[in-house]
Design a protein around this nucleic acid. Structure first.
Lengths: 198, 198
DNA sequence: ATCGTATTGGAGGGTTCTCTCTAAAACCCA
DNA sequence: TGGGTTTTAGAGAGAACCCTCCAATACGAT
């Protein structure tokens, strides 16, 4: 089966993720990743055809790991509980995986998504579509009487994704960490945004 | 008074802001800014001692312009109205200045704040301190009975800054624009987060 | 008209990065 | 033991970038 690998994809993606978290996507150069992992540049190019492919791997690995937990939370029976649980998950996941969370806080464009290999872009679109469907399902179940489907989805997106991520952004700024109490703050805010008007 | 300037700081900062908005802070290189403005690199170095100083100017110009409006909104008499108005302002300002808003959505670190000239860092700290004080004032006036000052400030920060900016982020992603109705959505969400519990 | 000054305009050195290419190394299997 | 295969290891070409430096330029002031 050939020479055993000292630097597999996982090691390189981890090094790249650490770099991105520490100094932004711009710091994720092929040379810097090789240095960070202690590998020769040849090994990096052996695993990834180029910089865009490596950036895609960093971004999509973080995204997939994140979305998995969101789907689990959204599967709860009670719709309000599902949404609030998802909001809470965003914080707890970020607390446990700060480097990946920092990757998540950037945009696809910052990771040069237009240059990704086509297969990676497809992988991203599939994940996004699946999450969008799950959120739309939650929104449908949470719709206020007389509220349109669009506004309801916007409200759920805000409560479940945007707001919790905004909290994460605040806590992770300047090398900080996400405190445990932030989970309750996110759950509380999500509840306020989604509970029926008094 | 010497030869008249064809490329003053404003022109260069505007070019750099456009670049940052289009392709991220990493795209703001001295060479790229010169190209974008149609200026020789010597002119750029004549106005800014180096790349960090130019990045600081881009970031701090956007920040100062943004904060000015927030202060105006926060000056309203009724505390709830002040906070909701500030949240609304975040959206309307972003709608009118999408490039500057895109700059705002990054972090200081993305603009390499640690390398800024000391004077620029001081300018940033002063602005942040002033805004922090204004938010603390609003939080004090909005404090629920029995609520601590810390949690109240967090709640106001979330409603007035983090959440509205999260909405802006969503709308400006992928080259989009901020719709007018987003202002109401931000105001509504801020109200829900800050109004006394039913 | 001439001087002083602020600014333009761009050449060039040193550095870093991306990517290619070749040779050697380390393992499995027959 | 001797292929066959995978991976390491790093040299090197070409491009981009940061920054320095200096001559040329265009204006106001005298």
């Amino acid at each position: 089966m050939g020479r055993p690998a000292r630097f597999d994809s996982g090691v390189l993606v981890a090094a790249a993720t650490a770099l991105a978290a520490r100094a932004g996507p711009g710091a994720v150069t092929m040379a810097a990743v090789a240095r960070e992992a202690g590998a020769p540049s040849g090994s990096v190019y052996h695993r990834f055809p180029g910089r865009p492919a490596l950036l895609a791997a960093v971004r999509l690995d973080a995204l997939a790991d994140f979305q998995e937990g969101v789907h689990e939370a959204l599967a709860a029976e009670d719709p309000l509980e599902a949404a609030v649980g998802a909001a809470r998950h965003v914080l707890s996941w970020s607390r446990g995986s700060p480097d990946r969370a920092r990757v998540l806080l950037y945009s696809d464009a910052d990771f040069e998504a237009p240059r990704w290999p086509a297969a990676e872009r497809v992988r991203r679109d599939r994940g996004n579509a699946r999450l969008g469907a799950a959120l739309a399902g939650a929104a449908e179940r949470l719709r206020a009487p007389g509220e349109g489907a669009g506004p309801a989805l916007e409200r759920v997106r805000t409560a479940v994704a945007d707001l919790p991520l905004a909290l994460v952004r605040r806590y992770l700024a300047d090398g900080g960490t996400v405190p445990a109490r932030a989970e309750e703050a996110a759950a509380d805010a999500a509840y306020r945004l989604l509970a029926p008007r008094p």
